[in-house]
Amino acid sequence: MLGEGIVKGMLETAKNFAGSFVSEDRLTTVEYPEQRIPTAENARVFPFLIYDGPDWHAGLRCVACQICEKECPPKCIYIEKSKDKKPDFVGKPQIYPARFDIDISVCMSCQICVEVCPFEAIKMDTEFELATGDRFGGLLLDCRELAKSNEYYHSIHPTEAAEVDARLAEEKKAAEAKAKAAAAAAAQKAAADAAAKAAAPKPGAPAAGGS
């Protein structure tokens, strides 16, 4: 019968229309900004730099190795190395970024900087309400604006942050063990040297001990 298909389609629409009063599933609209959908844990928007401890500058994990600058596909990262050094999380003196700028008007949120970073220093933020009136200055984020605490990282990506912390703790332990071993070895060597020195009769020097 002509028109049967149309009637069938209309019935389907009516079912959906009536269904939207009873079924939560069919109501898909959320009234932003009053209502918000929680962001997915893996969500990524723009990168930020992580610092440990209370002081952002002292705790910055970045060592200005410039790998992310080189690998960034749209070249939105700009790094200047510092002249002096500051201790990193294991206490080794390291260079830090004197300048670290990310131009988020160029950044395309691809996460490649995070993947290539060997120091777990750069991670992806989930903050997306970044509109600003100043097109140039407002979207060029500097080191201070990029630095965010490890606690903040834990609050947005809890699973990933826990894994990173475990990895870093292991690294730190290994580094400490290595340092301890090195110190022990050095002490041993020094002792051995001293012993050797003491044992060997030195020409021209007054004989020590009870000869």
Binding site: K75, C76, Y78, D101, D103, S105, V106, F136, L140
Partner: peptide, 15 residues
């Protein structure tokens, strides 16, 4: 090929 130098302004500081 040499790119033209009258590109639109890109704010990336080091480009």
């Amino acid at each position: 090929y040499v790119e033209p130098d009258d590109y639109e302004y890109e704010p990336t500081a080091h480009d």
